[in-house]
Design a protein around this nucleic acid. Structure first.
Length: 695
DNA sequence: ATAGGGTTAG
């Protein structure tokens, strides 16, 4: 060995050793690497580092705690004598600093070296296996623990339980947990969080209540954070409120993380009043995490103004927005199609150098797509350096929403080729793309490949995509056969798709079935009756139309009015059907008249058959002409520079007649018109629509 | 001397 040059220096006396060790410990606790390095140099000079394994072990630990695992490793390699603590300090230091693979390798080397395997090293190695989601490694560690009698030891067992639940093996986790003779708050947290992270939110809350019932262990801040997070997922503000009481009684209300978890729980339960109250307990309540939770809560409840208010407030308080804040804000712009604000946030993201965050850049891809700017969206996607599954999902979804199924499929193929594994969200987008373009065979192929090739069990949303696909293609019998043979019941989206398809095809029996099921799932859905009466109207069954109308009156159900939005001169203008409240109504009306005349010359014939009422055709034509999307387009044509594309957002599906009219308008006006309805995009260019009239 | 758990996003 190269270390045995000359005489071994004398080891320092016991008192000096203890003193030096405590100095090293304090460096580690403070994370003071500079002072730690100076001490190290002193120990090398005096020869103490080489002479005392005890002090060298302390040095390794100091470096690990100061986030310098490379120095720890170097020191380890140079040590002439290593004991079990030396090995343990190396393994845990690597795991602590995120070098999980190296930690597992070091653990294996420790075993090969033949010294004692400590419970400390075992729990560190289990932590590394958990971080790597490596259940096979983890199970081996479990075996070693059993052989050495450590498998029920507090630290080893709780890290093994955590490892199993992070690998999705909840029953294994529970078995380890159950066999612990005594459990502390850490063990309970691992278990509660294990349930929550595996989607068993109720079980997580029940585990918390079990812990309280047993009464042996008091909940600490970690326990409260975990259970509050689970309650947020359940959107249960009432139960959350009672946990809030427990938090106050236990005296954790002012802990930052607990308070963040409380604010987030209330925000997710859409109780924004209580969420903001948590922040106002004292001035320290405002931080980037709680602020972002509040912003996201407002975004999710469609209160963009309030979200923006919080965003401004954060900056006023000198709290810098982080990648979470930006992705929530950008998501809000995407939901409301606020292109200008979204682009401003994009600029901020570049300025703060958060553009490399995969959540943020994927949200930007989504935002540009949802604002109708597919080219910007794709351009941004192409500039992303490290493509993650999130980014791929975003771009596939953008293609799907815009009806570019072939591109969506090509992106999916590229995703697979680049070695990124698709997840269930990927398939929702891919199947949507196939559905929106009428690629039934491809869609079915991908649907069946989910389980066979990719090992992903299709969920209700995937089944609903297939129902939608058959429905849009007019293959209603196959849709019904598919529903009958499904292992689960269709969700509301599935029945809604079927109902819409039945309306397009005038299928009364299946339409009534879909309506009945949808009513059970969404009693407040106003579209059901409208669609049903549409089916009857298309069949000329006016008595049935009247009956539905009466039903709607009796249950005081109102038709959801159609609205269209268009941004012009940095202002959003909203139009309703036959809505003439706009200050420029006279000009808009004249433009609309002019357009109608010109497109009729081009061959436009109003399609009055789609209206569900028994009116004279002249009256029907008037209704069609004043649909909100047409008013919005007429307004955009007279108010926007000719170079800008017109982007109209709708809260309902675009009607067939407006679709035809807008094709003609795009031709006679030589303008690109983009309509985002409630399910997808239509790009009208020179008399054609990107959907190819299939939607 | 060396060890385990928590809060914000698609």
């Amino acid at each position: 060995m190269g270390n045995h040059r000359g005489q071994r220096p004398p080891a320092p006396d016991a008192a000096t050793t203890v003193h030096l060790a405590s100095l090293l410990q304090s460096c580690g606790r403070a994370g003071d690497l500079r002072r730690g390095r100076r001490l190290h140099a002193r120990l090398v000079l005096t020869g103490a580092a080489a002479a005392s394994t005890f002090l060298a072990n302390h040095l390794i630990t100091m470096y690990s705690h100061c986030a310098d695992p490379a120095s720890a490793r170097r020191l380890f390699d140079e040590m002439p004598r290593r004991n079990a603590v030396t090995w343990t300090a190396l393994v845990s230091g690597l795991a602590r600093n995120g070098a999980h693979g190296e930690a597992l390798a070091a653990f294996a080397a420790m075993r090969r070296a033949g010294g004692a395997t400590t419970q400390f090293a075992l729990s560190s190695a289990a932590r590394a296996a958990a971080a790597l989601a490596a259940p096979l490694h983890g199970a081996q560690l479990h075996c070693v623990s059993v052989r050495l009698g450590f498998d029920t030891e507090l630290f080893v067992a709780s890290s093994l339980a955590d490892m199993y639940s992070r690998c999705g093996l909840l029953s294994e986790a529970f078995r380890v947990f159950d066999e612990m003779p005594q459990k502390d708050a850490v063990a309970w947290t691992a278990m509660i969080d294990g349930y929550a992270k595996n989607g068993r939110l109720h079980a997580a809350v029940l585990a918390f209540l079990d812990m309280r019932r047993e009464g042996l262990v008091g909940a600490d801040q970690h326990v409260f954070c975990t259970v509050l997070s689970a309650l947020g997922g359940l959107k249960d503000g009432r139960l959350g409120g009672s946990i809030h009481c427990c938090v106050m009684k236990a005296g954790f209300e002012l802990e930052v993380a607990v308070r963040n978890a409380l604010a987030d729980m209330y925000a997710k339960a859409m109780d924004l009043d209580n969420a903001s109250r948590v922040l106002k307990i004292d001035p320290g309540g405002w931080n980037v995490v709680s602020g972002t939770s509040l912003i996201d809560g407002y975004i999710e409840t469609d209160c963009v103004e309030e979200a923006l208010g919080i965003y401004v407030e954060l900056q006023r308080k000198g709290i810098e927005p982080n990648e979470f804040t930006f992705s929530s804000m950008i998501k809000g712009c995407a939901m409301q199609a606020l292109l200008e604000q979204g682009a401003q946030l994009h600029a901020q993201v570049i300025k703060t150098n958060l553009i490399k965050d995969s959540f943020v850049d994927s949200t930007l891809v989504d935002m540009y797509g949802k604002c109708g700017r597919i080219n910007l969206s794709i351009q941004l996607f192409n500039e992303i350096e490290y493509l993650t599954d999130i980014a791929w999902n975003a771009v596939i979804n953008v293609f799907a929403q815009h009806g570019h199924a072939k591109e969506a499929i090509r992106a999916f193929d590229r995703m697979i080729c680049s070695g990124i594994r698709p997840n269930h969200i990927t398939f929702v987008s891919l199947l949507t793309a196939c559905s929106h373009a009428g690629l039934v065979d491809e869609g079915l192929k991908y649907f069946y490949s989910m389980k066979d090739t990719h090992g992903i069990e299709p969920k209700e949303e995937h089944y609903s995509c297939i129902i939608d696909m058959y429905g849009r293609a007019g293959r209603l019998d196959e849709a019904y056969k598919f529903i009958s043979e499904m292992p689960i019941k269709p969700n509301a989206y599935g029945w809604c798709s079927l109902l819409g398809a039945c309306r397009m095809r005038g299928n009364k029996e299946l339409g009534e079935l879909a309506a009945q099921n949808l009513m059970k799932l969404e009693p407040g859905n106003t579209g059901i009756h409208v669609s049903l009466s549409g089916i009857y109207a298309s069949l000329g069954q006016w008595e049935d139309v009247k009956a539905v109308r009466k039903l709607m009156r009796d249950r005081s159900i109102k038709k959801l009015p159609g609205f269209s939005w268009v941004d012009s001169n940095k202002k959003t203008h909203v139009f309703g059907s036959e809505d003439w409240s706009h200050p420029q109504k006279k000009d808009i009306y004249e433009k609309l008249e002019e357009l109608t005349t010109r497109i009729k010359e081009e061959g436009y014939i109003p399609d009055t058959s789609i209206l569900p009422c028994n009116l004279e055709d002249i009256a029907k034509e008037r209704i069609l002409r004043y649909h909100s999307e047409r008013i919005a387009v007429a307004f955009a044509l007279i108010s926007m520079p000719a170079t800008k594309p017109i982007i109209v957002k709708k809260n309902l599906r675009i009607c067939a007649d407006c679709h035809t009219a807008l094709k003609f308008i795009s031709k006679v006006e030589k303008r690109d018109i983009i309509v985002r309805d409630n399910s997808r995009f239509h790009h009208f260019v020179n008399g054609r629509c990107s959907c190819g009239d299939y939607w």
